[in-house]
Amino acid sequence: MDVKKQQAGTPLPDTTNMADHQYSVEDYEGGTQLEQGTAETHEMVSDVYMTGNNADPQNQDRV
């Protein structure tokens, strides 16, 4: 939900599930945006960890 487009007085969505969610292998098969995002972020962090640096893998020539 885009907060900028919210009307005055409209309550924000409950983010409790988002704040409490931790990565699990099942997130790769998950159907929610939260599960898919967690799986994608985990994949990116894992790739950076395995390369041994935090350089952008898409721009190796700039390092």
Rank of each mutant, 00 (worst) to 15 (best):
M1E: 13
D2L: 06
V3L: 11
K4V: 03
K4E: 04
K4H: 07
K5D: 06
Q6L: 15
Q6E: 12
A8F: 14
A8I: 05
A8P: 10
T10F: 09
T10V: 07
T10S: 12
L12K: 00
P13Q: 11
P13C: 13
P13G: 11
D14F: 02
D14L: 06
D14P: 07
T15Y: 10
T15D: 06
T15W: 07
T16M: 04
N17E: 12
M18I: 14
D20K: 12
H21K: 06
S24E: 13
V25A: 14
V25N: 13
V25R: 02
V25E: 15
E29L: 14
G30K: 05
G30E: 04
G30H: 02
T32Y: 01
E35F: 00
E35N: 03
G37Q: 04
T38C: 05
A39D: 03
E40L: 15
T41E: 03
T41C: 15
T41S: 13
H42V: 01
M44S: 09
V45N: 05
D47R: 11
D47W: 07
Y49W: 02
Y49V: 03
N53Y: 00
N53T: 00
N53Q: 02
N54Y: 05
N54L: 09
A55T: 04
A55H: 14
D56T: 07
D56I: 05
P57I: 01
P57K: 01
Q58A: 15
N59T: 14
N59L: 15
N59H: 15
Q60D: 12
D61Q: 05
V63G: 10
